[in-house]
Design a protein around this nucleic acid. Structure first.
Lengths: 170, 170
DNA sequence: GAAGTCATGTAACGGGTTACATGATTTG
DNA sequence: CAAATCATGTAACCCGTTACATGACTTC
């Protein structure tokens, strides 16, 4: 049920249309919470029906600009303060590691080396991202930077780990 | 589509029933790829229909022990060597960080401190897990240890990051 | 013989992905 | 006026979760 909260969160900054939100997802939330166009539009309709957002303005081409209602803001705060985040996330990448034993040691090492590569690239592209963004002083920027720092540290950790793991295979 | 590969992977070690697999999931794969009982049983039926596994033996109470077929092993190897793992995983925890700006600085700091706590506990319980397991010399153990090391490093990284992030909030 | 464990299966529902479908407005 | 972009909506399908349902065997 987090998509709805992601939408509420983005709308808490400023009103936006489905189209705007789709782009915000692709640019800022993509790595943390990807969402598709169809998903966003259907969820926006549900949120409006539930009274958590409203159509604040209409524009050309049927554009509907949504804004957060008081109720929506309350729900967002409730989610942030009263509900526990869940720790378990599925990881395709780690699942494979469990079963590397069915491969030859060389192949297993190759997989881990690929992960080193992937993590290094991830770090690299986050650095580029950090430079390309013109960080405003708004909330999304402040906390966006903190999330980005997480990404940097995460990739560095994974790179080191994969390097170590590759060395473990004899 | 990774549940099927998780099942194939576990069956590559030794034959097992749905019931056995359910427990293996709960004990060894829970943090990386959780699965429910209903999911496991339905997927096993599909895998058997597809010829990737077969009922190798039947036991009391309708117990069906499944074993990997050659085809199943081929599919497992194919998955491990030829298909790219996908990097993006959704994170409830990080999504919240983006929107901490709607809370007071104190509340935001409280959330991050909670994450410090959660990560420290995660690390702790992984240490206990490591001690409680009697590590065999089989493949699952070798690579299981590597995955566990990942968990330790991950939690340590997240703890440090959350501590740092809490300090960023003025 | 009661309680616990072993053992399997199915149905309803919710969220996410892919694909289809349409059309208005702006820009070169 | 053609191409690009803006803009929304819906349908089919897959995967995962929760809940329901049933019964055989073992242990105390």
């Amino acid at each position: 049920m987090s998509l709805r909260h992601a939408l509420l969160g983005l709308l808490s900054e400023r009103p936006a249309s489905g189209y705007d939100l789709l782009k915000l997802f692709d640019t800022s939330l993509a790595t943390v919470w990807p969402a598709t166009q169809s998903q966003i539009y259907t969820e926006l309709t549900k949120l409006a029906d539930a009274g958590l957002i409203t159509v604040a303005a209409e524009g050309p081409r049927g554009r509907k600009e949504y804004a957060l209602t008081e109720q929506g803001m309350a729900e967002l705060r409730h989610w942030l303060t009263e509900t526990a985040p869940q720790r378990n996330t599925r990881s395709d990448i780690l699942l494979r590691v469990f079963f590397l034993g069915v491969l030859t040691p060389g192949q297993a090492r190759a997989y881990l080396t690929e992960l080193v590569e992937m993590s290094a690239q991830g770090e690299e592209s986050l650095r580029h991202l950090a430079e390309s963004i013109d960080w405003d002083d708004d909330n999304l920027s402040t906390y966006g930077r903190i999330v980005l720092e997480y990404g940097l540290r995460f990739n560095a950790m994974r790179r080191d780990w994969a390097e170590w793991a590759a060395g473990q295979i004899t």
